[in-house]
Nucleic acid binder design. Sequence first.
DNA 1: GATGAATGAGACTTCATTCAT
DNA 2: AATGAATGAAGTCTCATTCAT
Lengths: 199, 199, 199, 199
Amino acid sequence: MSKAAARIRTAAISVFAVKGYAAASTRDIAASLSLSPGAVYPHYKSKESLLFAISLEGHTSALAAVKQADPAGESPSVRLTSTVRAYVKWHAQNRDLARVVQYELRSLAPDHFEAIAALRRSTSRVFEQIITDGNTSNEFNTIDIGATTLAITSLGIDVSRWFPSQTYSDPDTLAHAYGELSQRMVGARRRPDSLPDPT
Amino acid sequence: MSKAAARIRTAAISVFAVKGYAAASTRDIAASLSLSPGAVYPHYKSKESLLFAISLEGHTSALAAVKQADPAGESPSVRLTSTVRAYVKWHAQNRDLARVVQYELRSLAPDHFEAIAALRRSTSRVFEQIITDGNTSNEFNTIDIGATTLAITSLGIDVSRWFPSQTYSDPDTLAHAYGELSQRMVGARRRPDSLPDPT
Amino acid sequence: MSKAAARIRTAAISVFAVKGYAAASTRDIAASLSLSPGAVYPHYKSKESLLFAISLEGHTSALAAVKQADPAGESPSVRLTSTVRAYVKWHAQNRDLARVVQYELRSLAPDHFEAIAALRRSTSRVFEQIITDGNTSNEFNTIDIGATTLAITSLGIDVSRWFPSQTYSDPDTLAHAYGELSQRMVGARRRPDSLPDPT
Amino acid sequence: MSKAAARIRTAAISVFAVKGYAAASTRDIAASLSLSPGAVYPHYKSKESLLFAISLEGHTSALAAVKQADPAGESPSVRLTSTVRAYVKWHAQNRDLARVVQYELRSLAPDHFEAIAALRRSTSRVFEQIITDGNTSNEFNTIDIGATTLAITSLGIDVSRWFPSQTYSDPDTLAHAYGELSQRMVGARRRPDSLPDPT
DNA sequence: GATGAATGAGACTTCATTCAT
DNA sequence: AATGAATGAAGTCTCATTCAT
C-alpha cells in the first residue's frame, strides 16, 4: 500500500467513524487531507472498496490480536482472561477502526461482506473454543456456551460504540475489568493470579 | 398521532433499521407504503424529526419496560434479573426500533440528542442503582460498579445489532440466559429461585 | 406522455443531434428548457432511457411513414418511388430525430438495442420486398437485391447526416430526386408517370 | 511520426470507432496499449489533436484513393466505376478509420474542421466532375448532378456505418455492386466491359 | 391529506490534462 | 518517453424538501 493510500485509509477511518459510512462523503475524506475530491480514486476504486479495505484490515487485526493473546498450553481461565483483555483493548485502542469495522458491514458488497463475515466467525470461535475447553475440563461452569460467547463478544464490540466515556478512558483499566467479568460469566472456579499483559 | 403518521413511523423504523438512517431516503419510506415522495411531510416536518419521534418513542418505551420490571420491595438479585430480562427482551422483540434508537443517535439535532441522552441515562441509572443496592446490602460482590453497569447495558444494546441469530431467535430464551449472566457479573451470592416473567 | 416529458424529449433530440449523445449532458438538456439538472429525472429514469424513448419513437415513426407510403395494389415501381420518397422525406423533415435515431444506437443498453434493431429490420424489409416483387414481376432488373436494398436505405439514412446543404434544403425536392435515383438503381423498366405525394 | 505515436494513433482509431470520440477516454486508448494514462501526451498534445491527426490522415488517404482511381484519359463511365469502387472499398477496408473520419468531425476545433472540410470537398468534386463530364459528353443522362453526387458519396460514407454485415463482408464484392449502381444512377448509356481493379 | 414535478444541493465518479519522478 | 498521482471541472444521478393542484 502506497503512502498516499495509507493516508487516505486513515482519514477514511476517522471520517467513517464520526459520521457513519453512508453519511460520510468521499469529499469529506479528501478534504480532511486537503486533497481534491478525485484524489481518492487513483488509490481506491470506489467508496465501498475503501470500506472493504478498512474492514479487511480491521477484522484481520482484531483476529490477530485475539489469537496472539491465546497462549498455547495455558489453562482456559488464563486464556479467556488474556483474549478478552486483548479483544476489549483492541476495540478501545482502535476505537475508530473498530467502530467502522463493526457497524458498517451492511454497506459492503455481498461478496466483500462474506469475506469479512468469515473473519468474524473465526474470532468468535476463539472465544467459543476456550469456553468449551473450560467446561470440558470442569474449570468453567458455563450455563449456555453459545449465549456466553455471544455476550463476551458483545461486550468487546460495544466498547467501540461508547468508548471513551467520562469514567472509562483507559483501555487497560477497561480490559482488566472486562477480563474479570468474563471469568464470572463462564463460572470460572479458579482465578488466575497474575497474567502477562496482552498488549 | 394520526393513523397515517403512525404508519409512516412504523415504515420508517423498518427502513432505518435495514439501511441505516443516512442511507435511507424519505422516498424509501414513502415507497414502502406506496405513497408519493411528498407524503411524509404533512406528518413529519423533516427526516430528522421522524428520527427524533422514533427515538423518543423507543427510548421512552425501553425505559418504561425496565422500570416496570423493577419490582419495588424485592431483593437486588430479583430486581436485577427481572430488569435485565426486560431490557434484553425489549431489544429482541423490538429489534428494528431498538437498532434505530441505539445506533442512529448521532443523526439527531443537538437539542434532540440531548433529550434522548437524558432518557438513556435514566435507563442506565436503573441498573446502576440496583447494583449499588446489591453491593450495599452485601448481596452482590461487584468488582467495579461502573464497568459492570456498562457491560450489562452493552449486552442489551448489542442484542439489537445481531438478533436474531441462527442459535438465538427466541427473546425469552435469550433474556433468561442474559439474566443469569448478569447475576454472575455482579457476583450475586444467592440466586433467585423463580421469577415472574417480565413480559 | 406528460407535457413536461414531451418537452424534455424534444429538447433532448435537439441537443443529442447537435452534440451527439455522449457529448451531450443531461444538464445541457435541462438548461435548454431553463430547468434544473435534476428535473429530467421525474420523467426519464436515466439518460439512456431518454435515448431509448427517442429511438423507439423515431424508428416507429419512420417505419410507419414508409409502410403508409406503400400503397397496396400498386406496381412495384410506384411503390418503390413512394416509399423511398417517404423515407427520404422523413429523414429530411425530422433531421434531428433521424440523426439521433440512426447514429446513437450504440449507446443503447443491449436489450433496448435489440428492440430497436427489430424495428430497423422491419423498415429494411419493406424496401427489400418491393424490390423482390419488382424483380419477380420483371418490372425491375436489379443486379443484386441485397446490395440495392442496402444502398437505398443508406441514401435515406445518410440524409440525416448532412441535410440541409446549401443546395438541398427542401425535403420534397430531395425526396423526388432520390425517388428517381431509386428507380434507376433497381433497373425499373417503366417509369411511373404520376404519383400521389407521400406527404 | 514516431513508432509510439503511430501505435497510439492506431489504438485511438479503434477505440474511437467502437465508442465514438466523445465516449472514448484517453485512458481507454492508453489502456488498450497497456500504457499509463499520461502516455498519450508526449505524442499528442490533446485528445482533439489526436482526432485531427486521424482525420487528416484519413481524409487524405481517402482522397488519394479516389484520385488515384480516376484514370486520366478514360471515359466518364470507366472513371466513375473506378472511383466509386475505390471509394467504397476504402470505406470497407478502413472501416474504423472511415467511421471516425466521417462521423466525428463535429468534435474538431473550428480551424481543424475547416481544414478537413476542404479535403472532403475535394473528394466530392472528383465525383461531381466525372458526372459533369459524362453529361457534357452525353455518355451519362443524369437527372440532377448535385443530388446524384451527393447520393454516390452517401453510399460510400454510409458503408463505414454498417460494414461488414452478414451478407456483405467482402470489400471487393461490395465495391463492384456499388460501382454498377453508380452507373445506373447517372444513367450511363454504355457499360464498361472490364476494368482494372482499383485496389 | 396526498400527489408528483421541480429545485438546489450535493453525492460518487470520470476524465483530460499536468507534472514530478 | 513513460509513469501515475493529482487536479479541477464536469457528468449522471439522488435526495430532502417545497408547492401548486
